[in-house]
């Protein structure tokens, strides 16, 4: 038989029996052995592990004096030398969930693997699911038995330094680490099985969980266009005629910057499109379709805008992975910001 793992347990003032909201300011303390839900946790572990100590901290203390709290937690972990830290479960309690996530991060920094449990909409989960191992629970302590069973299964693996299977298999919240996986059965067969299950209201597991896209907050409107320097950006794959800069037609890994300082408009003699995603001939006939330099010059002449930025930016927006696109966008934005550009015209295709 293997030696039982040494488990440290993190809980808040409420589950430690100190008190509710009025006691949420209490600092970090340590107790030998299991306390409160730790006793059920110990039972769930059975022979696999022993809860050697419990770290208790008030939720407000963890939120309001985070440095002190984490220092104290680290100190206790250093004294106990556990094989694994279990935090919570925190269920739907937001401050507790965040405190559990922070305790797990502290443990991980010390080389102690850690797992917590909470509802998937708990701020602790929405903020830290990518960096902290989180088992999803129900909203209340009603789901305690299932949560503890799940947590002990993962904690045992972690404590034994066994590799974890993907989130979909182990049941923890996805960490944004999507990878190739051979499911052993062809896709068509899985799809029709899923269809049958869904038609009959039987449980099924989607292979691509909903992952909401990042929300980008738009910049504030330009207060005075007549003093604004305007830049032009296109993902329409505008290139100098003949593509001397060797822009690719898809899967861009860089952007191209072209000076328009001496240009009044874009002419088909000087410019064309190279882009694997639309009918390029429209642009080849009149490149101003994709970046309307002629109109901007007109507005500039009439004082409607302050000026046209010296450089325009171009790349083919075809099949660019989000991470690459983000990097390119940030680089262009930094460039424009440094050049004192106030606004830009972004023409897609």
């Amino acid at each position: 038989m293997t030696t039982p793992l040494r488990v440290a347990h993190y809980i808040n003032q409420f589950f430690a029996g100190i008190g509710g909201e009025e006691q949420a300011g209490v600092g970090v303390s340590f107790r030998d052995g299991a306390v409160g839900p730790g006793r059920a946790l110990a039972t769930a572990f059975g022979d696999a592990a022993t809860v050697v100590g419990t770290i208790v901290c008030g939720d407000n203390f963890a939120a309001e004096q985070p440095d002190d709290a984490q220092r104290a937690i680290a100190s206790h972990l250093g004294d106990v030398q556990p094989d694994v830290l279990v935090a919570g479960p925190a269920f739907a309690s937001g401050r507790y969930g965040l405190a559990c996530a922070h305790a797990c991060l502290t443990a991980t920094r010390l080389g102690v693997p850690a797992v917590t449990a909470m509802h998937r909409d708990n701020p602790g989960a929405t903020s830290f699911r990518k960096s902290v191992l989180i088992v999803p629970t129900g909203e209340s302590a009603m789901s305690m038995p299932a949560a503890l069973e799940h947590v002990t299964r993962l904690a045992t693996k972690l404590g034994r330094r066994e590799p974890l299977n993907p989130a979909e298999v182990e049941g923890y919240l996805p960490q944004g680490n999507r990878r190739v996986w051979d499911r052993g059965r062809p896709g068509w067969e899985r799809a029709l099985d899923m269809l049958l299950a869904k038609l009959h209201g039987r449980p099924f597991v989607t292979e691509v969980p909903y992952n909401a896209p990042e929300k980008v907050e738009p910049a504030r409107p330009i207060a005075d266009l007549t003093r604004a320097k305007i830049a032009m950006i296109t993902t329409g794959g505008l290139v100098r005629k003949g593509n001397p800069d060797r822009q690719v037609s898809a899967n861009a890994t860089r952007y191209h910057r072209h000076s328009v300082r001496d240009l009044e408009q874009l002419t088909p003699e000087g410019w064309e499109a190279f882009h694997a995603g639309y009918f390029n001939h429209i642009v080849n006939r009149n490149p101003n379709y994709i970046l309307p330099l002629s109109f901007l010059r007109d507005l500039e002449k009439h004082g409607r805008i302050g000026g046209v930025h010296e450089y325009m930016y171009a790349l083919p927006g075809v099949s660019t992975p989000v991470a690459v696109a983000t990097g390119l966008g940030q680089a262009i934005a930094r460039d424009l910001s440094t050049a004192g550009v106030d606004g830009c015209l972004l023409v897609a295709t």
Partner: peptide, 11 residues
């Protein structure tokens, strides 16, 4: 496109 193979993704 039609799921001939068993290759998939997971996280």
């Amino acid at each position: 496109h039609y799921g001939f193979n068993s290759l998939s993704c997971i996280e």
